[in-house]
């Protein structure tokens, strides 16, 4: 009974959190490019939840965040759904085993997750459409850096929400 109410509380907190992030990602951030690119905030949210709540919650959050990210990118593919689910699971496993729940760990995992997301986008375009990797790498690096700017606020938001849960 107690476990069920905990799940319900998590759902009630994480669902609106992801909805707000999706709206921010697809509206505000697309109009405010940093280094000429739109930052990605969904991977930051997934890393935060996975770091503080572990592999299961990280994986589930990654699944839904990835679906919303695919929607925000106007793509029918399940690219981010896959990448962010795996990110959530992996960061959660690391958090359960070796990582300390602090800002350095969050920064490290967030940077890795953002780099993986950008690299996977470049890789998919290179493989499926023959895009020149060197040309897209510049965009990928700027995208990663512009997203990293948001790690500090997202660390505290994630920590606060996960403590409430």
């Amino acid at each position: 009974m107690r476990e069920r109410s905990r799940v319900l509380i998590k759902l009630l907190i994480l669902a609106p959190y992801l909805a707000v992030l999706y709206i921010l990602q697809s509206t505000l951030l697309t109009h405010l490019p940093i280094f000429g690119t739109t930052p990605m905030i969904m991977p930051l949210a997934v890393c935060g939840v996975a770091l503080f709540l572990g592999r299961v919650d990280g994986g589930v959050t990654g699944l839904f965040a990835g679906m919303l990210m695919d929607l925000a990118c106007n793509q029918a593919t399940i690219h981010f759904t896959l990448v962010l689910t795996l990110t959530g699971l992996l960061v959660g496993i690391l958090s359960d085993t070796v990582l300390v729940q602090g800002f350095p760990s969050y920064l490290l995992t967030a940077a890795a997750a953002l780099a993986v997301c950008s690299a996977s986008q470049v890789f998919a375009l290179a493989v499926l459409r023959g895009a020149p990797i060197a040309l897209l790498s510049g965009i990928a690096v700027r995208q990663t850096l512009s997203s990293l700017i948001f790690t500090f606020p997202f660390y505290y938001i994630s920590r606060f929400l996960c403590r409430v849960m």
Binding site: Q25, T27, L29, A72, N74, Q75, R142
Partner: peptide
Amino acid sequence: SWTASNFSSSFT
């Protein structure tokens, strides 16, 4: 809204 992807140009 505009796409959040930096590798495509589309909008809704």
